[in-house]
Amino acid sequence: MAAPLLETRGLRVKYGNVEALHGIDLAVHAGEIVTLLGANGAGKSTTLRAISGLLRPSGGEIYFDGRPADGTPAHERVRLGIAQAPEGRRIFGTLTVQENLDLGAFTRTDRDGIAASQAWIHRLFPVLEARRAQLAGTLSGGEQQMLAIGRALMAKPRVLLLDEPSLGLAPLLVKSIFRTLRTINEEAGVTVVLVEQNARAALKLAHRAYVMEVGRIVLEGPAAELASDPKVQAAYLGGKARG
């Protein structure tokens, strides 16, 4: 297999004196959907924030496209091709849907390319087109999540980092958003790193998965394999009876 598109080696992050990540080794290949699973506090979001540059690691390395990305500030990583839809969506409630999407393309200057990205995002999430002039704060939770994903896609990323896109959403909406994620991956070849608590949905979508526990990776493998692993079933899929 070719060299991974995104790789972390021995990634460590500290909050004050407390180490939250004790050396994370991740390898994500171009075109993959990879999911990070784990309980609250396992360090999934921390890993994602270190990759996007919003947190400064205390040790280890991050490589993107074969080059070290550790010294690159967060806003420059967007230019490299790493975009994220952060936890809690963080959309701009007092700006319109359109203005939120415009922010996503802040690093780009190719007008035609931006217009094409926007047309594609409107096709993926038609409701964003219908509500383009509306203030984003008046959207429903699901629509806000779509906007957060759309905003990240406006940067035309090679890797899309998603932090808990299913949080607080109705099961039907989760299904619809995950279906769209697959489309994004298959149509545009966007590599996806997905942090999720909804392990069942995430394993169904992803090609490979990592399971994290208190700042370490304890298990990794193809998603289908992990889904049938009795340990994973017991811990994350609600026991054998329902797995």
Binding site: A74, E76, A83, F92, E99, L103, F106, T107
Partner: peptide, 18 residues
């Protein structure tokens, strides 16, 4: 526009390339 974004949410702005 950049100023408005960073006023509303500096983390989201930084994360979007500002």
């Amino acid at each position: 526009r950049a100023l408005n974004y960073l006023r509303e949410d500096p983390i989201a702005a930084e994360g979007s390339g500002v």
